[in-house]
């Protein structure tokens, strides 16, 4: 039914001033506005917490069915308190909006950038394996570091810390545990000096990095004829 109405640009009986059609259009717009309100974080324009939890649940189920990984990036603006204390809360808000803008620009259309709460953000990357998710996080980190924002008339360089993980559907995992697991790497990034991307290095498999030069040499060295 929804789709049917969407397709119709005017009243089916061609009445130019059809009150019913005007009302339907008004309701549809209102519906869209309300839908946005329930899904979007008004400050940053990113998806909100509710949408995050709902989508992540769906993507993890998709992973269990299809075997395609779901990537997750958790990030936290570095020294947010200092920004608030130095420049005031309004500038703090502007800083968060700035992140929203950059995340929006630097991610693919199917990625879901969400505000998790405070100065923390989560990006869901559907059908994305860990190495690609790490690259995406690295891209966000680099973009933020290299696009200073004007706060109180002064150019300020913002940085963020990132934790990345991917769900491969091998074991049953709740949304909360997946987030907690990823948060662990975010904490590690903070502890290791901020403005960096951390992840489980053991999960990067040989298939992704291949053999080391040493291994290759060892495999062939012994096969060369001796002189």
């Amino acid at each position: 039914m929804d789709q049917l109405l969407d397709l119709q640009e005017k009243c089916p009986s061609n009445n130019q001033e059809c009150p019913v059609f005007d009302e339907v259009r008004r309701l549809r717009e209102e519906c869209k506005r309300l839908q946005e309100l329930t899904q979007v974080d008004t400050l940053t324009g990113l998806f909100n917490f509710r949408y995050l939890m709902m989508s992540l649940e769906g993507e993890m189920e998709r992973t269990r069915r299809t075997g395609l990984s779901t990537g997750l990036i958790m990030s936290d603006l570095d020294h947010f308190k200092r920004i608030n204390d130095t420049h005031g809360h309004e500038c703090g808000n502007e800083a968060l909006q700035w992140i929203g803008k950059i995340w929006h620009e630097k991610l693919r259309r199917i990625d879901m950038a969400c505000r998790y709460g405070g100065e923390e953000f989560i990006v869901i990357l559907p059908g994305t394996r860990l190495p690609q998710a790490i690259r995406a996080a690295e891209r966000l980190r680099f973009a933020l570091e290299n696009s200073p924002v004007k706060l109180n008339g002064k150019l300020v360089r913002l940085t963020a810390s990132f934790g990345v993980d991917a769900y491969r559907g091998r074991k049953k995992l709740t949304v909360e545990t997946f987030i907690k697991q990823t948060d662990h790497f975010l904490l590690e990034a903070k502890a290791r000096g901020r403005n960096r991307v951390c992840y489980d290095e053991n999960k990067i498999t040989v298939a992704m990095e291949g053999l080391t030069l040493d291994e290759r040499e060892a495999l062939f060295a012994t096969r060369r004829p001796e002189r």
Binding site: T205, V206, A207, G210, L211, E215, R216, L219, F220, R223
Partner: peptide
């Protein structure tokens, strides 16, 4: 054959490590 040797090694590496 060297290609077979390398690929077997890569497979063994993945299976043992991951």
């Amino acid at each position: 054959d060297p290609a077979s040797l390398t690929d077997s090694y890569a497979l063994i590496k993945i299976l043992s490590r991951d």
